[in-house]
Design a protein around this nucleic acid. Structure first.
Length: 928
RNA sequence: GCCGCAGUGGUGAAAUUGGUAGACACGCUAGACUUAGGAUCUAGUGCCUUUGGCGUGGGGGUUCAAGUCCCUCCUGCGGCACCA
C-alpha cells in the first residue's frame, strides 16, 4: 500500500472535528498546561509558509504535553479589528465586518489543512461585541482607579477622593501626570469640573492634552511603538507632532513592576533586553537651580551629579513653560522666533539633522547651587520636553551632546573628570563613567562612582534636590480617530466624561454611511446617527487602538462564553496564566508591554490570580522568501537566457513565480502558461548533467505577492501532505532564527515519511509482528525516544526530526516490524506528524486517537552499552580508539590504556606526566 | 553612538558541564536495478602538496584539551537612539 497522504490528511482532520478530540474541559483532575499562539490579524492575502512556523512549534508542544498527561489549553482566535479592513472599506464601501469575516473563513480553512489541535470551541474574535464588552469594562475600571505608590498597586478613585477631602495633596502618594499641590479646603471649594480635572491627573485611564504622533495620511494618532523612524509602521506615512485631547493609559505607573518581574520570566535575553531598553530606567538626581533676579527656579534631572562643577550653561526644552518666564525682554524676539521654527519641524526633520545643534540664549542666568557663579540659560531642541523635567544642566566636557552645543555656540568647557582619553576635552568630550574628579571642590580626588554618591548626599543635605529615578516608558495614547475598533464606553455630561455601567455594556459599534472622517474633521463615528445616550449625552467619537483587544484575550480563552465576567474566578484559578507563549519578536515594545500592564492592573483589582500573563515565551524567526529570476534579452523581449549564460547577453532580470521552479530549474511549459505575454517565449538553455535545462537566478527577499516568491502552505500540503510540511518547517533550522524558505530539501523529509510508512507494510499488505524486540532494535527505539523527548523540552525541533530519521533508517536496515518497537515510535512521532501517526496507530489496531495515548519515556537500561570506544590522545591530539568495558573504574581505564600495546609505542622514550580520564568520553595522556 | 545576539563544508545546519568538529538533510560523484528515470537501493563526499598535515570570521591568551572560556579586532543581524 502506498503512502496516500491526501486521504490520510482528510480522514483524520474529519475524525478530530467529528469527535471533538481537542475539546478541553475546565474541570479536570489532570495538571494544566496552557500553550498559546499570538493570534493573527486575518489579512486578505491569507497565510504563507512563514505564518504557521510558530503555530506548528506550539502545536507539537501542546500535543506532546497531552501525551504526557496534561490537560492542555491550546486555543486560537483572531485579532480582528484593524486598519487594512477599514482602508478597504473606505475604498470599496464594504463593511469591515464583511471583509474580516471572509478573511477569517479562509484563515480557518488554511489552519485546518495543517492539522492543528486547537480547541475551536474557545475561539475569540476581538471584534465580537461579546468579547469587546470586557475590553470596554477593563477601560471603565481603569478610569475608576489610580495608582497608589504606597501600596504599589491600583486603588479605587474613592480612596483618592477621601484623601483629598481630608488632607488635600499633603502626604498623597499617587502616580500623577503633574505634581499638584492642593489643600483640603481648596479641594472642597472646587466645582465638579475642577475636581474632575484634578482626578484626571491620577486616573489610570485619563483624558489629556498631549503631544501626539499625528498621521495625516491615516487620519489618526499613533502610539510610540507604532512609529518607526518618523513614519507610520503601517503604510510608512509621515508622522507629525500635534497637541490633541486624547484618552491615555497610565502605563508609566507600572514601569518598575514591569521591569522587576522581567527577571523571573523565561523569556529570551534579547526580548527582556528590548523591554528593559523600552522602559529605560535611569537613576540620577533632581536638582533645583535658582534663576538670577527672579524669585523662582527650576529642577533639572541628571545621571551625573558628579559633574556638577563642570556646568557651564543650562538648556531648556522649547516646550518648557519656563522659557517664557525667564526670557529677558531684549531676547524675547529671538526666542519666540526660535520656538516658532521648532514647532514647524516634524519629528522626522528633528531626527534627520541629528548632528547640527540649534538653540538661542534666553538672556537669563541661573545661580550655581554650589559655586554661586552665574550660568547662562539657553533654549535648545536637543532637550526633550517629555523626559525628566524638560531642562538640563549642560556639562560639555563630559557629555557629547552638550559638547556639540558648546562648540556650536562657543560656550566654555571645563574638565572635571580626569581619566584615560580625557586629555583634551576642548576637542572631544569624555563621557565615560570612570576616572577621578578634579576642579570640583569637595569631590576632588574621588572616583566617579563615589563622587555620585557624595554629591547626592550633599544635594539632599542642603535641600537642593532629591535622588530620582526616571523612566523612558510613556503613557499609552489610547484614542484612534478610526471606525473599525472598540467604541469607548464613554459619554459626556457637561463636558465631563462618564463611564457606562457594566450592565449597559457592550456599547456596540454603530453603522455609518462612510468610513471617512466627517467634513468638519471629526472621526468616522461622528457620522453615526443617534450616537448618544437616551438622555441625549454624546458618546465618545474615537475608538480604541489595536492593542486594546489583544491585551487580555489570553484570559478570555479560559472562559470564553461567560457573560458575567471576563473570566470566572474558578476558570482563572485553574488555568492561572500562559505557560508557553509562541510568537514573533516584533511585539516586544507593543503588545507584550501593554498586555503585561493590562494583566497587572486586573491583578491589582483581584480579578485574576497571576500578575504576569506569559511565563515562558519562544519567539520564532521570520521566514523570508527565496525569489527566482529569469533573464530576458533586452533587445528580444521573447527570449530568455539561462542563468549560467546570462553574462554573455544584455539581459534584464524578471521575478518568476517560484511555484513553477523546482531546484532553480524552470518548468518551461508552465512558464509559457504562467502569463499570456510569455506564451511564445523562447529559451537559451544550458547543459547540466547531460541535460538541457533552464536555470533560474535567485535572491533572498521578504516574502510578498509582488515578488512572486510566496509559497502557499496549501500547495505544499497537497503535494507532500501536511505532515511533511510540518516536519519540514521544523527541520529547516532553529525555531528562533530567521531563515529563507527553500523547498529544495523537502524531498528528504518526504522520503523519511515514506520509509516510516513502509516499516508497517510489505507490498500492499500490512506486515507487523508480535515477536519480542531484539536488544539492538530496542536500543534504536530508546535512543530516539530519549533524544526526541529532550529536544521537545528544549524547543530544538530540527534535531528531533533528525533523530526520527536516524531511527527509521536503522529500523529499515534491521527490517524491524515489531509492534513493541513501532507503537512507542508512533506516539513520539504523533506531535510532529499527527495525521500519519493516527493512521499508523489505527493500523496497529487501536480504536482511540493517538492524541490520547501515553508518552513513552526512554528506558536508560536499553541505552547502556557493554563496551565503549575511548579516544586516546597524547598531549591533546587524538591518536587511536580503544574499546573497553563500560563499567571499568577510572583507575582501571587508566591502567588498561597505559598497558596497551599502541600506547607503549607512543610512550617510547617519553615519560608520562599526567593521565586524564573523562568517563565515557576521552583519555588524555600528557607526556614530557 | 549605546545595548543585545550571531559568524562552523558547495547549501540548511549538528555538537550537556571545555573532551573524537561537521550528526541529520539537500546537493554532488560513482555504482546497482531498469525500456526509461526527476523512482528505488548501495558506496563516497571539510580542505590540502594524503604513511602526513590543516581546519569552526582574523589575531592573541588560559588549559593536558577550546566551535565552546578570556582579551582584541573585523563582519552581519536585531533593538534603542539627542532619554541628560
Amino acid at each position: 500500500m502506498t503512502y496516500n497522504f491526501q486521504e490520510i490528511d482528510k480522514k483524520w482532520q474529519k475524525y478530530w472535528a467529528d469527535n471533538q478530540t481537542f475539546k478541553t474541559d475546565n474541570d479536570s483532575t489532570l495538571p494544566k498546561y496552557y500553550v498559546l499562539d499570538m493570534f493573527p490579524y486575518p489579512s486578505g492575502a491569507g497565510l504563507h509558509v512563514g505564518h504557521p512556523l510558530g503555530y506548528i512549534a506550539s502545536d507539537i508542544y501542546a500535543r506532546y504535553k497531552r501525551n504526557k498527561g496534561f490537560n492542555v489549553l491550546h486555543p486560537m482566535g483572531y485579532d480582528a479589528f484593524g486598519l487594512p479592513a477599514e482602508q478597504y472599506a473606505i475604498q470599496t464601501g464594504t463593511h469591515p465586518a464583511v471583509t474580516t469575516e471572509e478573511n477569517l473563513v479562509r484563515y480557518r480553512e488554511q489552519l485546518d489543512t495543517i492539522g492543528f489541535s486547537f480547541d475551536w470551541n474557545r475561539e475569540v474574535k476581538t471584534c465580537d461585541p461579546k468579547y469587546y464588552k470586557w475590553t470596554q469594562w477593563a477601560f471603565t475600571e481603569m478610569f475608576k482607579h489610580y495608582y497608589d505608590t504606597d501600596s504599589d498597586k491600583a486603588e479605587p478613585i474613592s480612596k483618592l477622593e477621601a484623601h483629598l477631602e481630608s488632607k488635600g495633596t499633603e502626604g498623597l502618594n499617587a502616580w500623577g501626570s503633574n505634581e499638584l499641590s492642593l489643600s483640603a479646603d481648596e479641594w472642597k471649594a472646587m466645582d465638579a469640573n475642577q475636581r474632575e480635572e484634578v482626578l484626571q491627573n491620577y486616573r489610570i485611564a485619563y483624558l489629556d492634552e498631549v503631544p501626539v504622533n499625528w498621521c495625516p495620511a491615516l487620519g489618526t494618532v499613533l502610539a510610540n511603538d507604532e512609529v518607526k523612524d518618523g513614519l507610520s509602521e503601517r503604510g510608512g506615512h509621515p508622522v507629525e507632532q500635534k497637541v490633541m485631547k486624547q484618552w491615555c493609559l497610565r502605563v508609566s505607573a507600572y514601569s518598575q513592576r514591569l521591569l522587576d518581574r522581567l527577571d523571573d520570566l523565561e523569556w529570551s535575553d534579547s526580548m527582556k533586553e528590548i523591554q528593559r531598553n523600552w522602559i529605560g530606567r535611569s537613576e540620577g538626581a533632581q536638582v533645583h537651580f535658582k534663576v538670577k533676579e527672579h524669585d523662582f527656579g527650576f529642577d533639572i534631572f541628571t545621571t551625573r551629579p558628579d559633574t556638577m562643577f563642570g556646568v557651564t550653561f543650562m538648556v531648556l526644552a522649547p516646550e518648557s513653560d519656563y522659557v517664557a518666564q525667564v526670557t529677558s525682554d531684549d531676547q524675547k524676539g529671538t526666542v519666540e522666533k526660535y520656538l516658532e521654527d521648532c514647532k514647524k519641524k516634524s519629528q522626522r526633520d528633528r531626527m534627520m539633522e541629528t548632528k547640527t545643534m540649534t538653540g538661542v540664549f534666553t538672556g537669563a542666568y541661573c545661580v550655581h547651587p554650589f559655586t554661586g557663579k552665574e550660568i547662562p540659560i539657553w533654549v535648545g531642541d536637543y532637550v526633550l520636553g517629555g523626559y525628566g523635567t524638560g531642562a538640563i544642566m549642560a556639562v560639555p566636557a563630559h557629555d557629547s551632546r552638550d559638547h556639540a552645543f558648546a562648540k556650536t555656540f562657543d560656550l566654555p568647557i571645563i574638565p572635571v573628570i580626569e581619566g584615560e582619553g580625557a586629555e583634551n576635552v576642548q576637542e572631544e568630550s569624555y563621557d565615560a563613567k570612570s576616572g577621578k574628579c578634579i576642579n570640583s571642590d569637595f569631590l576632588n580626588g574621588l572616583e566617579v562612582k563615589d563622587a555620585i554618591k557624595k554629591m547626592n548626599d550633599e544635594v539632599e543635605k542642603r535641600g537642593l534636590g532629591i535622588k530620582k529615578i526616571n523612566y523612558r516608558l510613556r503613557d499609552a495614547i489610547f484614542s484612534r480617530q478610526r471606525y473599525w475598533g472598540e467604541p469607548f464606553p464613554v459619554y459626556y455630561k457637561e463636558g465631563r466624561p462618564q463611564m457606562l455601567d457594566v450592565k449597559d455594556l457592550p456599547l456596540e459599534l454603530p453603522e455609518v454611511d462612510k468610513y471617512l472622517p466627517t467634513e468638519d474633521g471629526e472621526p468616522p463615528l461622528g457620522r453615526a446617527t443617534g450616537w448618544q445616550t437616551e438622555e441625549g449625552h454624546p458618546y465618545e467619537l474615537s475608538t480604541m487602538p489595536g492593542f486594546a483587544g489583544s491585551s487580555a484575550y489570553f484570559l478570555r480563552y479560559m472562559d470564553p462564553h461567560n457573560d458575567e465576567a471576563l473570566v470566572s474566578k474558578e476558570a482563572n484559578s485553574y488555568w492561572k496564566n500562559v505557560d508557553l507563549y509562541v510568537g514573533g519578536p516584533e511585539h516586544g515594545t507593543g503588545h507584550l508591554i501593554y498586555s503585561r500592564f493590562w494583566n497587572k492592573f486586573l491583578y491589582d483589582l483581584g480579578v485574576i490570580c497571576e500578575d504576569e500573563p506569559f511565563k515562558k515565551m519562544v519567539n520564532q524567526g521570520m521566514i523570508q522568501g527565496r525569489s527566482n529570476f529569469v533573464y530576458r534579452l533586452k533587445d528580444d523581449q521573447k527570449t530568455f537566457v539561462s542563468e549560467g549564460l546570462k553574462d554573455k547577453y544584455d539581459t534584464q532580470a524578471i521575478h518568476v513565480d517560484v511555484n513553477i521552479v523546482s531546484n532553480d530549474i524552470l518548468d518551461v511549459e508552465a512558464f509559457k502558461n504562467w502569463r499570456p505575454e510569455f506564451k511564445d517565449a523562447k529559451f537559451i538553455l544550458e547543459e547540466e548533467g547531460g541535460e538541457q535545462i533552464y536555470k533560474c537566478g535567485w535572491a533572498i527577499e521578504k516574502m510578498s505577492k509582488s515578488k512572486y516568491n510566496v509559497v502557499n502552505p496549501d500547495l505544499i500540503a497537497e503535494k507532500y501532505g501536511s505532515d511533511t510540511l510540518r516536519l519540514y518547517e521544523m527541520f529547516l533550522g532553529p525555531l528562533e532564527q530567521s531563515k529563507p524558505w527553500n523547498t529544495n530539501g523537502i524531498e528528504g523529509v518526504f522520503r523519511f515519511m515514506v520509509k516510516m510508512w513502509n516499516l508497517f507494510h510489505k507490498g500492499d499488505d500490512v506486515n507487523l509482528s508480535d515477536d519480542k524486540a531484539t536488544p539492538e532494535e530496542l536500543k534504536v527505539l530508546h535512543t530516539c525516544l530519549k533524544k526526541v523527548t529532550e529536544d521537545i523540552e528544549n524547543f530544538s525541533f530540527n534535531t528531533s526530526v533528525a533523530a526520527f530519521m536516524i531511527a527509521v533508517n536503522d529500523l529499515s536496515k534491521l527490517k524491524c516490524n515489531k509492534r513493541e518497537v513501532l507503537e512507542p515510535l508512533v506516539i513520539a512521532l504523533s506531535p510532529f506528524a499527527p495525521h500519519t501517526a493516527e493512521e499508523l496507530w489505527s493500523i496497529l489496531g487501536h480504536s482511540e486517537s493517538v492524541a490520547k495515548a501515553s508518552w513513552v519515556d526512554a528506558n536508560e537500561s536499553y541505552l547502556v552499552e557493554s563496551n565503549f570506544n575511548y579516544p586516546v590522545s597524547f598531549n591533546g591530539k587524538m591518536r587511536f580508539l580503544l574499546e573497553l568495558p563500560i563499567d571499568m573504574s577510572k583507575d582501571e581505564v587508566e591502567k588498561a590504556v597505559l598497558e596497551n600495546e599502541k600506547s607503549q609505542k607512543w610512550l617510547e622514550g617519553k615519560s608520562v606526566k599526567k593521565v586524564i580520564v573523562v568517563p565515557k568520553k576521552i583519555v588524555n595522556i600528557v607526556v614530557g
